[in-house]
Simulated scan of single mutants.
Amino acid sequence: MLRKAPSNDRVMGEVSDFVGDYRLVAHNASFDRTFWDAELDRIRVKRKQDFVCSMLLSRRLLPQAPNHQLGTLMALAGLPVTGRYHRALADAEMTANLTIYLEQELMLRFSLGFFLKRIWPIFASCGPGSIKIGRTSVTTRRHFDRR
């Protein structure tokens, strides 16, 4: 089975092309960023994107958490556990859910409801990309969950 598998270099090249310059989200992103950079170095490619760290966000937004492990934060936020921890797909799904929760928490704390109701639909209709407003760059995307 492994003899017929594509090489690591080929797979990493395909993954890198697929991801492009979209930001990557990870819980404890410094670990994932180190791995990502090392693999890209092997195929002589430079990283094109930044990472978003749900653990760093949670430390700022949920200082009352007893720790900032993914499982603890999922329980604190009342989010579903989608599988066993430290398994790629389950961790990715839970990190995505936690990041959306943290994003919504930011919106609520800083009274950005007006933005969500009036301005966000304009950005969302523009499709994925980035819009410059003065010195501010706003990233748009088609999917946005609200509580």
Rank of each mutant, 00 (worst) to 15 (best):
residue 7 S to L: 10
residue 82 T to Q: 09
residue 122 I to L: 15
residue 7 S to N: 03
residue 21 D to T: 03
residue 63 P to G: 04
residue 145 D to S: 14
residue 3 R to K: 08
residue 127 G to E: 13
residue 119 I to C: 02
residue 57 L to H: 01
residue 33 R to A: 14
residue 35 F to N: 00
residue 28 N to G: 05
residue 112 L to C: 15
residue 58 S to Q: 04
residue 65 A to R: 05
residue 65 A to P: 06
residue 106 L to E: 14
residue 111 S to A: 14
residue 88 A to I: 10
residue 62 L to H: 03
residue 90 A to Y: 06
residue 109 R to H: 11
residue 46 K to A: 14
residue 119 I to R: 00
residue 59 R to P: 05
residue 40 L to I: 04
residue 52 V to K: 01
residue 9 D to Y: 09
residue 122 I to N: 02
residue 6 P to N: 08
residue 1 M to Q: 10
residue 77 A to Y: 02
residue 132 K to D: 09
residue 44 R to L: 07
residue 100 I to C: 05
residue 138 V to E: 03
residue 134 G to A: 07
residue 58 S to C: 11
residue 138 V to G: 02
residue 40 L to P: 01
residue 52 V to E: 02
residue 120 W to Y: 11
residue 104 Q to E: 15
residue 135 R to Q: 15
residue 113 G to V: 11
residue 87 R to E: 11
residue 19 V to P: 00
residue 46 K to R: 15
residue 111 S to Q: 13
residue 147 R to Q: 06
residue 85 Y to N: 09
residue 61 L to A: 09
residue 8 N to F: 07
residue 76 L to M: 13
residue 27 H to E: 04
residue 90 A to G: 06
residue 51 F to R: 07
residue 48 K to L: 15
residue 16 S to T: 10
residue 42 R to S: 11
residue 9 D to F: 08
residue 139 T to V: 06
residue 138 V to Y: 09
residue 71 G to V: 03
residue 84 R to V: 13
